[in-house]
Design a binder for these strands. Structure first.
Lengths: 213, 213
DNA sequence: TTACTAACTAACCATTTAGTTAATTATAAA
DNA sequence: TTTATAATTAACTAAATGGTTAGTTAGTAA
């Protein structure tokens, strides 16, 4: 039988990325030290430099991976609802929301990167972003051609969707806290879960997209 | 006559905050060093610790100041358009957009703070955020009562507005770059300026808010 | 003129961090 | 079994950073 594996390059590398995803997407780039990542996955720090050029290299890998995941999921659900703009759009919003709730720090991370004009942003990930946007554009165009949607700026609609999700996800913990004390009658949607957020956004975006007769 | 002032505590403190605003809102918290701030305003580093408890203390001051500014401006334009939901909303969006374009890194900074559940967030600033939200809620409620707007979740509408602005501002440089090369026929709104962004968002939000008959 | 205080400086310290290196061990091919 | 190489480690460096401190001026009130 196979001896117990003491060395496994593939596994080690995977451990590094996974822990890096966890840490970067929880604390951000600067606040996460390489030592910390190494310790988190019980691997010597030098191993990180063995598998990746440097901290930024690892970071790029992390961001690319996360983006790749979104894209794959969004694309899958798109292909399941070909030429059905309403369903496609619903799936798009659902998928993005789900992913955002799973990695709540990702929006902040992304925004940070964008603020630097993509200075440290891997082109690989950058192109994935464009692909996602292209997909939504496609959905909107089809809807328009079928007379279901009115003419819009896809970029704006895209940002309305993911911008709202970003904020809902990011502020969730905060809103829950405020919701508890429930001072005044301010409704901060403290109880809103993933499905509700997704459904509400879809509902409002649809209203916005409704073709004028 | 008065001799030339060689020491001016008020001016020095002001210099520190102003440069800190500039740097923090351009590079973020971690990427900005205290030495850097001191150098930027030609003041000895120790002075920063003389006037502020520590780096975080200065940061809190900066964030509070920025929030205060938005609130004041938003509130002013609100009071100029009392009981005119449409005008109030327009002013709200205009003001927020203007501020965001002026401090393009602020959205990222804010999102970062929110991600930490406001761990490092000064309560002072936190309450300003709630005040801004309360103001929008008020506008929406009035619109509803006057039969101009339909019933909505203010929190969601709020996030749709500022979430979109955030992303438009943050990605501006990037979109301009992509717009130049203009590969494919993707419209990334590369030419959109402050006014256009503001107007488009207003237009779409209004459509979303239109009362059903 | 003296005494006092607020404003300011230069130098330093302790700690953290990204990144390196030289040595060591496991593994698989010869 | 030997050997080459891929994987791994401990220990290190150099630079940067937040924060401190001892001491110095400039302004002011008695």
């Amino acid at each position: 039988m196979k001896e117990k594996i003491k060395r496994d390059a593939v596994a080690t590398k995977a451990k590094i990325v996974n822990n890096a995803i966890q840490l970067f997407s929880t604390k951000g780039f600067d606040a996460t030290s390489v030592d910390e990542i190494a310790q988190a996955c019980g691997v010597n720090k030098a191993m990180i430099y063995y598998y990746y050029k440097n901290k930024s290299g690892l970071y790029e890998e992390v961001m690319s991976t996360l983006m790749e995941w979104i894209y794959t999921q969004v694309n899958n659900s798109y292909e399941k609802n070909l030429h059905e703009p309403l369903l496609s759009l619903k799936a798009f919003i659902d998928t993005y929301t789900k992913h955002a709730f799973q990695y709540p720090y990702f929006p902040a991370l992304l925004l940070r990167e964008l603020s630097d004009s993509g200075a440290h942003l891997a082109e690989k990930m950058f192109s994935k972003m464009r692909q996602i946007f292209r997909l939504l554009s496609q959905i909107l165009k089809e809807g328009e051609q079928l007379g279901v949607f009115c003419e819009v700026k896809p970029m704006m609609v895209h940002f309305m969707i993911i911008g709202t999700i970003n904020l809902m996800v990011t502020t969730q913990a905060l809103r829950e806290k405020v919701g508890e004390s429930n001072e005044e009658n301010l409704d901060v949607c403290a109880q809103c879960d993933e499905e509700e957020v997704s459904a509400y956004i879809f509902d409002k975006i649809i209203k916005m997209l409704k073709a004028e007769k």
